[in-house]
Design a protein around this nucleic acid. Sequence first.
DNA 1: AAGAAATACTACTAAATCGATAGGATATAA
DNA 2: TTATATCCTATCGATTTAGTAGTATTTCTT
Lengths: 151, 151
Amino acid sequence: MKMSTKGRYGLRAMIELASHGGETPVPLSVIARSEEISERYLEQLMTKMKKADLITSCRGSTGGYCLARDAADISVGDILRAVEGNLNPVDCSVDSEAACENSGVCVAKYVWQKVNESINQAVDGISLAELVAKIPENEEKQPGAVCACQK
Amino acid sequence: MKMSTKGRYGLRAMIELASHGGETPVPLSVIARSEEISERYLEQLMTKMKKADLITSCRGSTGGYCLARDAADISVGDILRAVEGNLNPVDCSVDSEAACENSGVCVAKYVWQKVNESINQAVDGISLAELVAKIPENEEKQPGAVCACQK
DNA sequence: AAGAAATACTACTAAATCGATAGGATATAA
DNA sequence: TTATATCCTATCGATTTAGTAGTATTTCTT
């Protein structure tokens, strides 16, 4: 039951992005360098977060990524589900397609549903803004601001 | 963030074992057959659960496995941690050895700690006895009883 | 005493997943 | 026109997962 680098990198990248204030797009290279993440790999994660409408992007010179909305309106759950897929520990507990033939009488399923609920509750209860506010020494610039680039 | 077969099989095997009442040891072959799990693979999981003092075993003919204590005193968390290792989604959040050099100022760590707590709380809040009681049609026999074999 | 049935222990292996890397194509500002 | 970005797709080595395999040992039954 480990969180993969997708979730770990994705969260860190979003924290980094949010802490840049949002006035101008932040290039991938900046995020990757300061978080020490492979640029090429992080790019794939950014694509997922863009598809999930958590960030926007601008191409070309002076391009980069921006938060798609206020950091207070982006939860850690939004981020993790965007890059990791759903957070259910066992698919059959939620997805009716993945359910086995014993689904109706399966007692274990009860466990997986409880775990699933508690994980999602935990991550949905933390906003990106909250995390940025925790960064020591006022490293953050304008946590709440949304980037001028709206693409 | 998926639970592996270790956790899934381990839990099912324990439910099956607990539902046998506990008067006589239950052979691995019986559990494996009724849960449709590879006998050889399940054996390795049983070894882990034995090391965690959740079950006892008797060798030889008429041998098998028994719960080491009352099903009410075995939590799902006990079982999952026995077969999966710790349930922390990210090691650095708990294990100080695994902590990175940024551990002191890491904001992401706060997230992983919260998730860790919520997962463990969820699984520790469910007992094996509770699950056996949920089995429909009185398939269970004597949930609370502990096996005569104490080895 | 022999045989059957069970756990105990250790090593190996095929398949899937993870964590990247690679090579371009396309867009945009200076 | 050039430098600097994102976008898209494919590939690939390493690790982990899930399961096999072989053998030893213990215990009950006959």
